[in-house]
Simulated scan of single mutants.
Amino acid sequence: MPEVIFNGPAGRLEGRYHPAKKKTAPIAIILHPHSQFGGTMNNPIVYQLYYMFAERGFAVLRFNFRGVGRSQGIYHGQDELSDAASALDWVQTINPESRACWVAGVSFGAWIGMQLLMRRPEVEGFISVAPPAGRFDFSFLAPCPSSGLFVHGDEDRVATPKDVQNLIDKLKTQKGIVIDQDVIPGANHFFENKTDELVESVGRYVDKRLAAIGETMV
Rank of each mutant, 00 (worst) to 15 (best):
K170V: 14
Q165F: 13
N95Q: 06
G203P: 08
N95L: 03
R66K: 14
A211M: 10
A187G: 09
T24E: 10
C144L: 01
Q92K: 04
I30H: 10
V158N: 14
A159Q: 07
L116F: 03
E197A: 10
A10M: 04
Q72G: 06
E80S: 09
Q72E: 15
M118C: 07
A187V: 10
D196C: 02
F58S: 08
A20L: 13
S86G: 06
V68N: 03
M114R: 01
P132H: 03
M52H: 08
C101L: 10
L210V: 12
K162A: 07
A100S: 14
M1S: 10
M41H: 01
C144E: 01
F63D: 11
T40V: 01
L149F: 11
A25Y: 04
T216G: 09
A110V: 15
V202Q: 09
Y51A: 03
H18E: 04
K175M: 08
S201L: 04
D207I: 08
T195L: 00
D182V: 15
F58C: 13
Q115M: 04
V103S: 07
M118F: 02
G214Y: 04
R66V: 15
F37N: 14
V123A: 11
D79H: 09
A20H: 11
G176N: 14
T216P: 03
S128N: 00
V68R: 03
S201H: 03
I127P: 02
G105V: 05
G125A: 01
H18S: 08
L116V: 09
S128W: 00
E55I: 03
F190Q: 00
V123L: 11
E80N: 03
S35A: 14
A212Y: 06
R120Q: 09
E122P: 10
D156C: 00
L13G: 07
H34N: 09
S147E: 00
T24N: 10
D137I: 12
C144Q: 02
R16A: 06
L13Y: 13
F63S: 12
G15C: 11
L31E: 05
V4N: 06
E97S: 13
G77L: 09
P96N: 11
F150H: 14
L171Q: 13
L117T: 00
I127A: 07
K208V: 03
R70H: 04
E192H: 14
G148C: 01
G57I: 05
L116A: 06
G105S: 07
L49N: 05
P145Q: 04
H189S: 11
V151M: 10
P185T: 15
C144I: 01
L13V: 14
A28S: 13
E3N: 12
G67H: 11
D169H: 15
S82L: 11
S82Y: 05
R204F: 03
W111L: 09
R12K: 13
A28R: 05
V158D: 13
A59I: 04
R119V: 02
F58T: 12
L13N: 11
Y51D: 05
G69M: 06
S86Q: 05
S139K: 15
L81N: 02
V164F: 12
Q36T: 07
